[in-house]
């Protein structure tokens, strides 16, 4: 009887603990299938990682720099080049860039200001998510644990979510992998196929 009460109490405690835990967050990643470092003017400013979450392919870009406005301007430039107004998906691109600039401004306004020493970098997370039924872009910020250059995510806060055209998302995932990670189309195909089949794949090599 005594043991049963104790067991009940333990179960109850575990249940309570589970109840108060935050819902399974977007950053809870089991396995990153691929990652590469993002450079700006030869300095590492972030990481692009590809993984599967809840059956969806996720391309997550984590950027940390004090020059986020310039990085966003660079993204705009690339988006405009990749998605001219006459190309299907350009509307999604425009919405994405507009949201990106909004979030960047929010992050700039919310940034920590240093009283001594240069300002800490702003952190921008961009997720391109392509599931079986939906495709969206999540924009937000993140926190890291340990060495800031190792990109061990401890928290991710989504500030804006945009449901966009599936083809745009799928194509942009490929474009980003090719641009940021220097992967060729074959390597990208293999990587994305392995994710959709759930089969592990060898780490693709950049071009």
């Amino acid at each position: 009887m005594k043991h049963r009460n104790l067991l009940t109490a333990v179960v109850l405690l575990f249940s309570l603990h589970a109840a108060f835990l935050p819902p399974r967050s977007a950053w809870a990643i089991r396995e990153i299938a691929y990652r590469c470092t993002v450079f700006a003017a030869d300095a590492p400013i972030g990481e692009v990682r590809v993984f599967q979450r809840d059956g969806a392919v996720v391309l997550q870009t984590l950027l940390q720099t004090v020059l986020m406005r310039r990085v966003v301007a660079e993204i705009r430039k690339k988006e405009e080049a990749n998605w001219p107004s006459d190309r299907p998906g350009s509307e999604s691109s425009q919405r994405y860039v507009a949201a990106l600039e909004r979030v960047q401004r929010v992050l700039w306004q919310q940034r920590a200001r240093s009283t001594r020493g240069p300002n800490p970098p702003q952190r921008l997370a961009i997720e391109f998510v392509q599931g079986t039924r939906e495709a969206w872009v999540g924009l937000g910020t993140f926190e890291l644990q340990g060495n800031p250059t190792a990109f061990n995510l401890s928290a991710l806060r989504v500030l804006e979510r945009l449901d966009l055209d599936r083809r745009y998302i799928g194509e942009n995932i490929r474009l980003i992998l090719a641009d940021a990670c220097h992967l060729d189309q074959a390597a990208i195909d293999r990587l994305l196929r392995s994710l959709s089949t759930g089969q592990p794949t060898a780490q693709p090599q950049p071009e």
Binding site: T65, V66, L67, R116, G117, P118, N119
Partner: peptide
Amino acid sequence: LDFLAVVPDQPLVRRLISPEQT
């Protein structure tokens, strides 16, 4: 100042302002 803190060629900037920018 953020820009100057991370520009790749620092000698002139380092000559004119301390690393803490104080």
